[in-house]
Design a binder for these strands. Structure first.
Length: 436
RNA sequence: GCCUGGGUAGUAUAGCCAGGUUAGUAUACCGGCCUGUCGAGCCGGUGACCCGGGUUCAAAUCCCGGCCCAGGCGCCA
């Protein structure tokens, strides 16, 4: 191997011999001394050479170094550590594994490069330790969530990404050629998850991508995003779904608070687990709340972005919570498969989770009664034939069920305080970007 | 898709409204100096007006078209 230790693992004892490897971060010459900073994913080490004492060959190598060259270094831990950047080593041997030209972007933050240019050079941009911190946090969120799901009886499954019929909702789908026939990339795995409830799988989750062919030019939309989608059976109503969702959500955040102090510090963010239960606001009361805040929304209509922000503010002031549920959306603005409130059917048992002013998920209770589903297909003005592949199954027994899909990038974005969702995707897909 | 703003060295910006000598600055890069730097410092150097058309004696600057970006809205995860 080209190394014996990652940089953070370099032992403290003077005289210890190690071999590390990483990118050259900086080279400085001060008087009779030469400093080389080498960084790997765990941290930075400073190589210190005294020009008067160092080996000629070694000096030659050091003088030839450029920042971002990839090197492997054999070195010794010195008696006295004076470097403030991290570990210090006296190098004995430096092997250059790869040479770097001048970087096309700034990764230090001194002349910070704009996001779009950074994304052109993403693999290099991702060398910025702040970016690594973002993905470590994302990884920890997912770990916290999947461990919670696994330990609460949920089974991970994978439903198809390629689907044969355009789905129910209004979102545009990417069309693909499927052996000469039209097929589509799913815009949500939700209908197939419901079919697994019909199958009696009972409690499932899926982490996977969805695609939207919407030319959305906003800091919070992607054409390709990933969700943690959960579906469960034998619920009494949508409140059972909310209780699962909030525990899952907190399990992810808790894990980050517990394990990612260093990354939280690198990013300079603040993070607290929300208290449970997460407050719930319902239609039509929401109209009154907004009205009291000076915003009038017509009865039966959805709230817009401004309304969403006002509700976030309301919840923060009244409940001191950064997260809240919106429940009982107007059926008019929701797809055919949601369950309406039987004795007040203009409202649906349809739930969004909002966190730090951002919509993280949609979900709720689904309609499992065949006649009701067909009635709602008609109410939405859909051709029953196009959804028959889905609806037919409900003639043969379906448990009451519900679920939700938490947008992983949205969640990550809110947690790390990113101003653009593309920051939290290694290689984001947006209307004008599909490379690299 | 609509609205607003923008595109100047590798990167980030000033200049544009009131068109006119070598297009300023920071950083990166190259060279030099400096007995411990840690966003090191100091000196010197290389390096740029998005593309196409138009107005004009003269265009980075004004006009038209295109491409691209940011933000807001819509839609949503």
């Amino acid at each position: 191997m080209k190394r014996t230790h990652e940089i953070a693992e370099i032992p403290e004892e003077p005289g210890a011999n190690v071999r590390i490897a990483g990118f050259v971060e900086n080279i400085k010459e001060v008087g009779r001394l030469l400093f080389v900073w080498v960084r790997d994913r765990t941290g930075t080490a400073q190589l210190t050479l005294k020009k008067t004492e160092a080996d000629e060959e070694l000096l030659k190598v050091v003088r030839s170094l450029n920042t971002h060259d990839v090197v492997s270094v054999v070195g010794v831990v010195p008696d006295r550590r004076e470097a403030k950047v991290g570990m210090e080593l006296v190098p004995k041997e430096i092997e250059v594994l790869s040479r770097a030209e001048r970087l096309p972007i700034d990764v230090t933050g001194i002349a910070a490069t704009q996001l779009d240019t950074r994304l052109d050079w993403r693999a290099i941009d991702l060398r910025n330790p702040k970016n690594l911190a973002v993905f470590r946090i994302q990884n920890t969120l997912i770990k916290g969530m999947t461990e919670w799901l696994d330990s609460h009886g949920f089974m991970q499954v994978f439903t198809p990404c390629i689907i044969g019929a355009p789905s129910e909702s209004g979102a545009e789908m990417f069309e693909i050629d499927y052996f000469g026939k039209k097929a589509y990339l799913r815009q949500d795995p939700q209908l197939h998850r419901q079919l697994l409830m019909v199958a009696g799988f009972d409690r499932i989750y899926e982490i996977g991508p969805s695609w939207r062919a919407e030319p959305s030019h906003t800091p919070r939309h992607l054409c390709e995003h990933r969700g943690c989608a959960v579906e469960l059976s034998y619920i009494s109503d949508e409140l059972d779904v909310m209780r699962v969702e909030e525990q899952l959500f907190v399990a992810g955040l808790k894990r980050v608070v517990e394990e990612r102090n260093r990354e939280i510090e690198i990013l300079g963010i603040e993070l607290e687990e929300p208290n449970l239960p997460i407050p719930e606001l319902r239609f039509p009361e929401i109209y009154e709340i907004l009205s009291s805040m000076g915003k009038e929304v017509k009865f039966g209509e959805d709230v817009d972005r401004e309304g969403e922000r006002l509700l976030s503010q309301y919840v923060l002031e009244k409940y001191n919570s950064e997260a809240f549920f919106i429940n009982r959306f107007p059926f008019a603005v929701k797809p055919f498969y949601v369950m309406r409130v039987d004795d007040d059917p203009i409202w649906a048992r349809s739930v969004d989770l909002i966190y730090r002013g951002l919509e993280l998920s949609s979900g709720g209770q689904r309609e499992h009664r065949y006649e009701k589903i067909m009635e709602q297909v008609r109410l939405k003005g859909m051709n029953p034939e196009t959804v028959k592949w889905f609806t037919e199954f409900f003639r043969y027994g379906a448990p009451p069920h519900g679920g939700f899909n938490i947008g992983i990038e949205r969640l990550t974005m809110a947690v790390v305080g990113a101003s653009n969702i593309r920051e939290v995707v290694p290689f984001p897909r947006a209307p004008e970007r599909y490379m690299p």
